[in-house]
């Protein structure tokens, strides 16, 4: 079964003092992969500047605006149409011998291959005392452990907006046990990596039709590498394995690898940012 989606991303910036030159780089275009296919994309901006497509260091499509004329307000809008395939996350057979998988996870070539998603970053480093927060049970398969971890993280953090930001590190989250999708994802990544499972932070859109948690912004979830299966998405905010409602844009080691907007602005004074996301599903 196929799902057709229309996604609207809109960002507004207001600057107190005029901006003389600025670059914005948006990382909001859904990627093409085995479960999703981008059909059309449309960008508009309120300032008189061209919108260029490019590819960032980790290989994801960006849209860039370079504005050389002074302005105080800028609006950027993107509209994407894509189809998403029905995903059955359980479409595989569990391994007969779990120990082979754990052996693989701890083998040097494997750890070298997935080095980037096994190392800790400033946003995903667990304090020493919390390293045993969740231990994988070797008697169960890696996948089963990941499902359990997903549920664990879901129950560990209470969804609450406005208490954390994109710079919040794990000690704060572990202490307050509150946060939003990126906090769930950072903690999930950290715990998975401690258990030797490669984990990557995914930034994307969530179709909220079914009453999932999230807000009118971009969503985040985790992809874990499971031997013999590959990368599987886990949305611990909603205690789900990622499915057709999850539209992926980019992945990285943590939030810093995939913020939706990077801006270099030559101006002084404050600025106010507002952005909204709308995901619509056509039957």
């Amino acid at each position: 079964m196929k799902y057709d989606y229309t996604i609207k991303y809109r960002s507004e910036n207001h600057y107190e003092t005029p901006v003389f030159e600025a670059y914005w780089q948006f990382l909001v275009t859904p990627e093409n992969n085995s479960t999703q296919k981008l059909i059309t994309e449309k960008f508009t901006t309120s300032v008189n500047a061209r919108i260029e497509e490019s590819v960032n260091g980790l290989g994801f499509t960006t849209s860039r605006i370079h504005c050389k004329k002074p302005f105080k307000d800028i609006v950027f809008e993107a509209e994407f149409k894509l189809t998403k395939r029905e995903v059955n996350p359980f479409d595989f057979t569990l391994p007969l011998d779990n120990s082979l998988d754990y052996e693989l996870l701890s083998s040097l070539p494997f750890r070298v291959e997935f080095e980037a998603y096994l190392k800790n970053t400033a946003l995903t480093i667990l304090p020493k005392i919390s390293e045993d927060l969740f231990k994988f049970e070797q008697s169960k398969s890696v996948f089963e452990n990941c499902i359990a971890l997903n549920t664990f993280i879901h129950n560990f953090i209470t969804f609450k907006t406005g208490v954390t930001n994109t710079n919040t590190t794990l000690p704060t989250i572990l202490e307050n046990k509150e946060g939003v999708c990126q906090d769930y994802t950072h903690l999930m990544c950290a715990v998975a990596r401690v258990n030797q499972v490669p984990a990557r932070y995914v930034s994307g859109y969530l179709h909220q039709g079914d009453g999932f948690l999230g807000d009118m912004q971009m969503h985040a979830w985790t992809e874990l590498y499971i031997p013999e299966i590959g990368w599987v998405g886990f949305d611990s905010t909603n205690n789900l394995v990622a499915n057709h409602n999850h539209i992926k844009v980019a992945h990285g080691k943590d939030y810093n690898d995939c913020p939706p907007l990077k801006g270099i602005v030559y101006s002084s004074g404050n600025n106010f940012t507002k952005y909204t996301v709308e995901v619509n599903h056509q039957q």
Binding site: Y23, S54, N56, G57, T62, H66, K262, I264
Partner: peptide, 22 residues
């Protein structure tokens, strides 16, 4: 490249790394 690495770099060139990668 402040768009790829440190965003506070005032001495770099925004977009340079993407040009390099290409």
């Amino acid at each position: 490249d402040p768009l790829e690495f440190r965003s506070d770099s005032a001495i770099g060139v925004p977009g340079l790394f993407a040009a390099y990668k290409k």
